[in-house]
């Protein structure tokens, strides 16, 4: 195995493109190092992108925020502007692991690790975030929900890496939230996660919504039926129950060591409902 720490994006892409065997990008390393130790295949090349200038920056752009691929969760949490604009996304990222993990783990790494249970991903999807991909063929921006294609698999082509994630300008009268279910209070992988971002119209009813569910399908789900359940009305008990039912109906989970199909299906509805209530309150909604 070879370790490289290039100081330009071009050099990083060049190294990844030229690699003979398996090559992996190292950002926070909190997933990669575990895989290096116990994974089935040792990569031939690890490209550390933390020495590329700008990778560790959060930059305001078009009223929104561009978060570099090497920004650790702790830095995200310390950014007051981002926290005020997208509290659900920041909280979701901060749920990943311990304080120690927060010192290293990145939102982009969480996205590219392509775990269906990644905490920041449903929140980013709900927020309408886009991933900026750099590669030998140049640059492209894609919705974050198009990055993961299955557990551990992404749509990135050979030589490509995600350099940043862009969180758009926060619309007026809107709010977001993310909740997950874990048996403990910390240190677990989500058994179910639910991210909700919604906007209120002048009349106080929900005018737009995005609802994403984690750990209930091979990738995080952006579910239209969930959004439809709450758009057009005030977020009253009936709307919340419709949302819960839609979320449970959207689930295609598996039984594993962390939860059963029945449990995940039930709790997805509960969490979607609770997250929507928080997002609604953050948007200024009144019952």
């Amino acid at each position: 195995m070879r370790y490289e720490a290039p100081d330009t994006l071009e050099a990083a892409v060049g190294l990844l493109s030229a690699a003979d065997g398996a090559a992996r990008v190292l950002a926070g390393g909190t997933d990669l190092l575990v895989q290096l130790r116990s994974g089935p295949v040792e990569p031939d090349l690890v490209v550390d992108i933390k020495r590329v200038p700008g990778m560790d920056a959060i930059v305001e752009e078009a009223g929104g925020f561009r978060v570099g691929a090497a920004v650790p969760g702790a830095a995200l949490g310390e950014h007051a502007g981002l926290r005020a604009a997208w509290p659900g996304v920041v909280e979701a990222t901060e749920l990943i692991g311990s304080t120690q993990i927060q010192g290293r783990a990145t939102m982009v790494g969480n996205l590219c690790n392509a775990s269906p249970a990644a905490d920041s991903v449903p929140a980013m999807i709900a927020a309408g975030a886009t991933a900026r991909i750099e590669g030998p063929g140049g640059r492209r921006d894609v919705p974050v929900e198009e990055v993961a294609t299955g557990p551990g698999r992404t749509s990135l082509a050979e030589g490509e890496l995600v350099a940043s994630v862009f969180l758009p300008a926060r619309p007026a009268r809107s709010g977001d939230a993310y909740l997950r279910l874990i048996p403990r209070t910390e240190m677990d992988i989500a058994v179910v996660g639910a991210g909700v971002s919604l906007t209120l119209g002048e009349n106080g009813a929900v005018s737009a919504a995005r609802v994403a569910l984690g750990a209930v399908a091979p990738t995080a789900l952006l579910d239209r039926a969930c959004a439809d359940a709450i758009v057009g009305a005030a977020l009253d008990a009936a709307a919340l129950e419709k949302l819960a039912a839609a979320a449970s109906a959207a689930c295609r989970p598996i039984d594993d060591k962390r939860g059963t199909v029945a449990y995940r299906t039930r709790v997805a509805g509960v969490l979607a409902r609770r997250a929507a209530a928080i997002a609604w309150a953050r948007a200024g909604g009144r019952a």
Binding site: R184, T185, E186, M187, D188, I189, D256, K257
Partner: peptide, 16 residues
């Protein structure tokens, strides 16, 4: 054994 690690063998942490 499906959970041979501290991630999924869930011992109490300080906040529990």
């Amino acid at each position: 054994l499906r959970n041979p690690g501290f991630l999924d063998y869930r011992m109490p942490v300080a906040s529990d």
